[in-house]
Amino acid sequence: MKTFVIDPDKCTGCRDCEMVCSLYHEKVVNPSRSRITIIRDPLDGIELPIICMQCDEPVCVLVCPVNAIYENEHGAKIIDYTKCMGCRTCVISCPIGGALIDPVSGKTIKCDLCDGEPRCVKFCSTKAIEYLDVSIANQRIKRNTIERYLRALKSGRV
């Protein structure tokens, strides 16, 4: 079983992930149509990646009135567009903002893990987003935390 590990401290705000996500899914470069979103404000110093975490007990699956969301062999929760009626219930109920609306096509969209090889991860040069086996992921999250602490310690900020 794999999961995303996201470390906002490593996100530079370059948005290669957004550009390549739209390129993979829509065959065009258009960050506004990406499944991954970087909440970014260079003036306030914010770069925060937001993406569907493929929950164990996904709210989107529970609330979908037409059962359009299923799980594929990679554990991705996929929207079946032959069923989806675009009611946005999943968009409204997802507590982490993982489901969104494509502003061009109007379709409800979400991360589908690119057939098990998320392109955002491939293009992320700083490893702000990784896709790892959960046992490794646990170690990575702990390491990221401790590195953050050590950095703060070294800078004299704690």
Binding site: T12, C14, R15, D16, F123
Partner: peptide, 11 residues
């Protein structure tokens, strides 16, 4: 932290 321009993997 390090930050980058759009489309830059070097930061």
């Amino acid at each position: 932290k390090h930050v980058a321009c759009m489309g830059c993997s070097v930061h």
